[in-house]
């Protein structure tokens, strides 16, 4: 049986985290095997959506019980929907709380507490407000970069001549497609920015082959994220995946544009 304990540190001597979603670590204790693992919690970053990632992390670790100081109603709903028991109001060190749980001391107190918690059931309006809040956060998080891109396009439109930008591309569809794929690979960020940049490049006379390759590699190839991908999946996987994605973007761009031209004609 696996138990997740929100924690301020990476060992059993650390204090139990005050909030499940934003504590720096999750201690995953396997009672059967008698060992534990400390995992850095995505929620500790305080970014929007990362609290939910902590929930997903707990689920993906096959945890059956969560022990924490406080768990928000939304997090509690997700965890309980996945068959995970939650015990809140806990303090002390992770080791102490774990021992209390093993002895059954927490269960007697906390189950009663949860049953009397008035916020356990949230109506549809609460779910809608929660979704609205998350959507606003997601939207707001992409807005600064997006506005920066729009303002930069304004500058390019005014200060950089179309002739100059077009001169960066050779006019050869195959070579231009490679160039587009290359720029898309080194640039990173929200996909919405690649659409706006791509749309503007078309106005400058850059070929649709090139713009399509840029849009594809913008999302599928990530030179900026490559170190993180290597750390997660290994060097071989990351290099192969990014390399194939780069090469694959060329035929996809060519097929897309050829089919589009056929359809429009």
């Amino acid at each position: 049986m696996k138990i997740a304990i929100s924690s301020e540190g990476a060992d059993l001597k650390a204090r139990v985290g005050h909030r499940f979603g934003i504590s720096p670590y999750l201690i995953i204790a396997d009672l059967g095997a008698g060992n534990f693992e400390a995992v850095a919690s995505p929620g500790s970053l305080g970014q929007q959506g990362t609290g939910v990632q902590t929930i997903v992390l707990a689920i993906s670790k096959d945890v059956q019980t969560v022990l924490t100081g406080y768990c928000s109603p939304a997090a509690r709903r997700h965890l309980e929907a996945n068959g995970i028991e939650i015990f809140t109001g806990l303090s002390g060190t992770v080791g102490e709380v774990l021992e209390s749980y093993k002895k059954g001391e927490i269960q007697k107190v906390e189950v009663a507490k949860i049953e009397h918690e008035p916020e356990k059931r949230i109506g549809n309006m609460g779910i809608l407000i929660d979704a609205m809040r998350r959507s606003c956060n997601q939207f707001a998080s992409m807005l600064p970069i997006f506005l920066g891109v729009v303002m930069l396009i304004g500058l390019l439109n005014t200060f950089v001549s179309r002739q100059f930008l077009a001169s960066l591309f050779s006019g050869n569809p195959v070579l231009d497609t490679f160039l587009g794929a290359f720029f898309g690979s080194i640039l990173a960020g929200n996909a919405i920015n690649s659409y706006v940049i791509g749309g503007e490049l078309l106005r400058y006379g850059i070929s649709l082959f090139s713009v399509t390759a840029l849009i594809i590699t913008w999302v599928t190839v990530g030179l900026v994220q490559l170190p993180a991908e290597i750390a997660a999946f290994g060097r071989r996987f990351a290099l192969l995946r990014n390399g194939i994605c780069f090469l694959l973007s060329i035929p996809i761009a060519i097929i897309t544009v050829v089919v589009v031209n056929l359809v429009i004609r």
Partner: peptide, 29 residues
């Protein structure tokens, strides 16, 4: 027996997106 997922820790450190996402628009300004 214990283990700390160091790759996770390393990966998650230093990604202070709320501040970082304003750098680019600030440069444009």
């Amino acid at each position: 027996m214990s283990s700390v997922n160091k790759e996770n820790v390393k990966e998650l450190k230093g990604k202070k997106a709320p501040a970082r996402m304003f750098i680019f628009p600030a440069c444009v300004l």
